[in-house]
Nucleic acid binder design. Structure first.
Lengths: 189, 189
DNA sequence: TCGATAAGAGACGCAACGTATCTAAAGGAG
DNA sequence: CTCCTTTAGATACGTTGCGTCTCTTATCGA
């Protein structure tokens, strides 16, 4: 028998990969420690040595494998292009995790999530948006003073709402609608 | 021993009440058939005779006890008042169920919910909004033609987003912001 | 080469699931 | 009022997944 044993970093990587694959395979509500352990060809104890429960394991897998919204600021030279680029990034980030998973974690583990993934996304989104708006204001595209934090958060909030509520992939046209029919008319000088 | 046995409608009512109370007491993730049965002073079999699982039971309890968004249209004589009245109703409807419960059901049972509670709310909301906008247009407050379905859904979508994402009760000021800083500027003639 | 560390196998008790069986109340039919 | 059907409520079953332990032994560093 190949009694190869992985350890340390290599093992941890395998475990998180297995968790991520299992998530994709069976979905969050049906993901079990058993299932992940089996997929990683190890035993549950190995998982429990690292993460106290299912949510923490999935959270760790997300941190490792989901594209965390990067703080990189799109710069297309005009507000509209920047907005669409940002919204596309937010959308694909949320869709990579999957609304089912997001709902599951929010319902089971609200408090801790509160301090990790979700607000991270919202905060980073707000920072990026802030730079985009600053630049647009310099170009004279908008009147920055009129834009309250709620308005600034509007585009990403709407995208989040759509992804969470409608369970299908979000068509690009929706992003365009949000930008052209809602946000731009609201902020144009 | 009082071997009183309830039956039929009266029993069903008790069961749903127990489920609703249990939901409030322990929250959706910790709600068990055991717990509900105990609270109703009966056995799990009685529950399973009526509902195949936890989600259906909770769904039934919600239909029975949560204030389904009524189709009644507020009429304060001006758009702003109508909007705030509608948003307050949507907010209290969502908060009565609780975001934890909504997330739980969305993550576990998406497909079936898809055909019941959630879109019901969204549809009714859209109908009410449509009447409100029609009236405002007649009064000359807005240009109805410019309002796309997405814009019409904006206020309720934002409220839904807030309730689902921030886990605290939604301050009334947020509704005012949504109406005054976002929706009205967007639709005013 | 040896010793410390920790992987992996497995068993534990617990909780909740969903099903099935049994008894005796409840309520309707005559 | 009596009988007969329905079904409440109690209880027990097997299953799954949880989280905790224990034990052997592979792996790695000293």
């Amino acid at each position: 028998m190949t009694a190869r044993r992985r350890r340390g970093e290599a093992l941890e990587e395998s475990l998180l990969q297995a968790a991520w694959d299992e998530l994709a395979a069976v979905g969050y509500p049906k993901l079990t420690m058993e299932g992940v352990a089996a997929r990683a060809k190890t035993s549950r104890a190995v998982l429990y040595r690292r993460w106290p429960n299912r949510v923490e394991l999935v959270l760790a897998a997300m941190r490792r494998h989901a594209p965390m919204l990067s703080g990189e600021v799109p710069d297309t030279g005009e507000l509209r292009g920047d907005l669409l680029a940002l919204l596309r990034r937010v959308t694909s980030g949320l869709e990579a995790i999957g609304s089912e998973t997001i709902h599951g974690m929010l319902s089971e583990y609200i408090r801790d999530l509160d301090a990790t993934v979700y607000p991270h996304g919202r905060r980073v989104g707000a920072q990026v948006m802030s730079v985009i708006l600053e630049r647009a204001a310099e170009r004279g595209e908008i009147d920055r003073a009129k834009i309250t934090p709620r308005i600034a958060g509007l585009p990403t909030d709407l995208v989040r709402h759509e992804v969470l509520i409608t369970q299908r992939p979000l068509p690009d046209g929706v992003l365009v609608e949000i930008v052209d029919d809602i946000f731009l008319p609201l902020v144009r000088a």
